[in-house]
Design a protein around this nucleic acid. Structure first.
Lengths: 220, 220
DNA sequence: GCAATCACGATTTTCGAAAATTTTGGAATT
DNA sequence: AATTCCAAAATTTTCGAAAATCGTGATTGC
């Protein structure tokens, strides 16, 4: 792996995790110290992250971690619902045995991690990776690279908002998120598109609501 | 404007235009010659374009112009219809006088250029810019930055396919594209969402069909 | 006292060369 | 004749310094 790729992964991780908070200026000299490399690979990584809207750039004035706003989060959730319900219909319509088997596997691996976790805030990253993998496995058979591309982009955009909530309450504070995932997978595997789409939409609306109140609380 | 930004614009232009054909390896030494600058600004531009899927990159093996395929084009059109119909409904629902005025202006400027053009292949870029601006103006009031972001990404993705057709037949080969634009704007301004969405979808399906047969012909 | 100006330090941007890696072409071996 | 191996060439990647630009604070002029 090249240094530029390491820089990309490290920066991306630190931004999504919040180690580099929103709005923070990303000075080359600092980053060079922090990640132990020269300017070139860092600038490459920053340019890629800029195109993904994880960092902002102003000509001759350097880079910053992109700001967070409740409005942007709500917007991202709205578009996620639009795009992912369409992808889900496609996956249910055209998914084969591989899709079904991978979905069962992803759900199972997610469950194992949730049970291992038992509310502890450790290994949040393993949990997060399993969660991402589950949602990806659910949609993957839709057969549309662009739908998947938009899914990935919006997933990381919303990930930035969900991580702080996860760190505070890894099990989901009263809500049985795992049961929602199981029901969603069940409906998809039963090829019940209408139910599956409704469950997916409800899943996101509940998650959005939880994060919304969390952000309001934090502001108070 | 920094050299990196110039490099980004120039590369983007040359890729969309087809001056740098799909699959062509983008060697730093060549690009340095072609655009008259060092490696650094070029690498930055290439990294941004990679994130936009206009170029592909393989570790230690350099960059290439991203390939074209009929399947990818059809996929992009499908997602454009999904996303833009949603944005159009939003714009019609919440667009104010500024939106309406800008839309009228964009349609008018597009018409002026079409008439000036009169089938000649010159100034295709002015025409293309007006066309892009019209579709942007149509959706802009939807109030969703993410919907607009996806629109922009997919517009340039499909632009690569449409430009060769435009160069061959600037007026649209029998089809009165300008009438479609006018009808679309009229329905939107009349706040008739159902009609406007139907016209937008039909507009894209016809364009896709024209390009599809064109590509098939070229292959024969 | 206050605004405009200038010089300095901090920072970004770019270059040119060095380092690392892949690719190429040919010689040696089977 | 085909394959493997190695050195040379081509190419990408990275660094360190130079150039360009921005922001700041002191200084000057009014």
């Amino acid at each position: 792996m090249t240094l530029a790729e390491k820089a990309y992964d490290a920066l991306r991780h630190d931004i999504v995790r919040g180690a580099l908070p929103a709005g923070r200026p990303l000075r080359l000299a600092d980053l060079s110290q922090r990640y132990g490399m020269g300017f070139s690979p860092l600038r490459e990584a920053l340019n890629r992250l800029q195109a993904e809207r994880l960092v902002t750039a102003e000509s001759l004035r350097g880079f910053k971690v992109a700001p967070l706003s409740l409005a942007e989060f709500e917007d991202a959730v709205r578009v996620r619902i639009l795009v992912e319900t369409e992808a889900l219909r496609g996956a249910i319509a055209s998914g084969g045995d591989d899709w079904a088997a991978n979905l069962v596997a992803a759900l199972y691996a997610l469950r194992l991690q949730v049970e291992r976790q038992q509310g502890r805030a450790e290994d949040i990253w393993e949990l997060e990776a399993r969660h991402h993998a589950f949602h990806r496995a659910l949609l993957l058979a839709c057969g549309s690279p662009w739908l998947m591309e938009v899914f990935e982009r919006l997933y990381t955009a919303t990930e930035r908002y969900r991580i702080p909530a996860l760190l505070a309450a890894p099990t989901g504070a009263g809500r049985n998120i795992q049961a929602e995932h199981a029901a969603l997978a069940e409906a998809a595997l039963a090829r019940d598109a209408v139910t599956a789409v409704a469950l997916l939409e409800a899943h996101y609306r509940r998650t959005a609501e939880a994060i919304r109140t969390r952000i309001s609380d934090a502001a108070a």
